[in-house]
Design a protein around this nucleic acid. Structure first.
Lengths: 238, 238
DNA sequence: GCAAAAGTGTTCCGGGTACACCCATGT
DNA sequence: ACATGGGTGTACCCGGAACACTTTTGC
């Protein structure tokens, strides 16, 4: 058996029965205050599909991997192209490649990311933000993928210090605590929380305070030096 | 710009300048007793490459992903084809896709696995076992990959109970402890180790004992029920 | 009996948790 | 003044680490 392929390179590849294509998608989380509520919730942007398969359904932002770019670069690029976002934290999640996850054979390298509320660009064509706890039925296996990403987020928040990826440069301990409480889904003791993050050595106190309602709260910033070396031998690997 | 491809489907695809191919490789660990020493060490099988690129160099067992098989199935198949091994534990490690990791563009979905010494089939053509601590220079970025897999192994051994993937069905606590000591690279207190692993609820004591040198040691087996649910929402996902 | 590994008991220490309490500010 | 969140002090609990000690075998 032989096959012949003739196509313009600029278009999306036509489906070839024994070809495998590589896509890159990103689950990108932020925290936002629910309208009509004082509680924060995990939210993520989805893109409405404008072509088959699953036309009209919501899907994770992503696109085809380009021959000339690394995996992480492809995640950043496709994320920017579809949503206009540039996350502060980006990490590979998993490679999904079940044969029936798409009509044609697609292996998706999925990344997950965190973004600060102030970095969010709103009102992008075909993009909408959803509460992670109340997603509609998504295209492909994307519901499953989001579930897994949420699991990783909750897990990682437990032992790593990535929560600052959801906050602006300077923040109060109460704001940081709210991030943890939202992701973990339970209340944390303010006193103990303070001591734990202070002793972790990741926080640098500033001389600025957030004023407003009651006693002013000291603003902190993150110590960027600690950041790395948690992922093991892989620095910024693809 | 257009391109034309004409090829028999049974052969390995020829290199096409703007094509991306998907490979699957596996880092598979076992423990073996070093010759002329009483200490155990982490070892893994490598395959000598018989064609370019990197002909003659050692590489991880693997092969091309088939259109009709899931990622995990491809890992199992290529592992069996190249080494004859069927691991008791197999999990996705990472997707490697840097543009310069191979002369042509290859994205490798890498799995890592554990195998029991009694499952090892020896004397397979072009396959040789190496001490993980003293590897030669491998093909592609495979040294990096093994380093990362070793890091994950050590990490996971700390919080998960996968060490039994390296032991036969029944084993003494001393044998189990040796597995941990070898992977972690430090001695563990036998008394404390016993209590910890006993209280974890993963061990089932048998009425059999290993006799030999001194006081007989009770044999244990693993409680298979606990096994799962550790990977989150992904059961046996690809 | 003695060496050596199996197995038990006990103490200490540090980090997490619960909770009482004081401090500083807006209204 | 008082309500409210910021921030401190302290007692308790539990799990890990260290280590002394007893038990059971082979030689």
């Amino acid at each position: 058996m032989t096959r012949t392929v003739l196509m313009p390179a600029e278009t999306i590849p036509t489906v070839i029965d024994d070809a495998i294509r590589v896509a890159v998608s990103t689950v990108i989380f932020t925290l936002r205050r629910l309208p009509g509520s004082d509680a924060a919730a995990v939210a993520l942007p989805l893109v409405r599909r404008t072509r088959d398969p699953h036309e009209g359904q919501w899907a994770l932002p992503g696109g085809w991997l380009d021959v000339t770019e690394d995996l992480g670069a492809a995640a950043s690029r496709t994320l920017a192209e579809t949503t206009g976002l540039a996350p502060s934290y980006l990490e590979q999640l998993y490679a999904f490649g079940a044969i029936d996850r798409s009509p044609s054979r697609v292996v998706s390298i999925v990344y997950w990311a965190l973004i600060r509320p102030d970095e969010i660009v709103d009102a992008v064509e075909n993009v909408s933000w959803f509460d992670a706890a109340a997603l509609p039925e998504l295209a492909f296996d994307h519901n499953e993928i989001v579930d897994y990403a949420l699991w990783r987020l909750r897990n990682k928040v437990g032992y790593s210090r990535i929560a600052h990826g959801l906050l602006a440069d300077e923040f109060t301990l109460a704001e940081l605590r709210e991030v943890y409480e939202t992701i973990l889904g339970r209340r944390l003791d303010p006193a103990n929380f303070r001591r734990q993050v202070e002793n972790s050595g990741n926080l640098i106190p500033t001389e600025r305070f957030r004023t407003g309602s009651h006693r002013p709260a000291r603003l902190y910033r993150y110590n960027q030096d600690v950041e790395l070396a948690e992922r093991g031998p892989l620095g910024a690997r693809d």
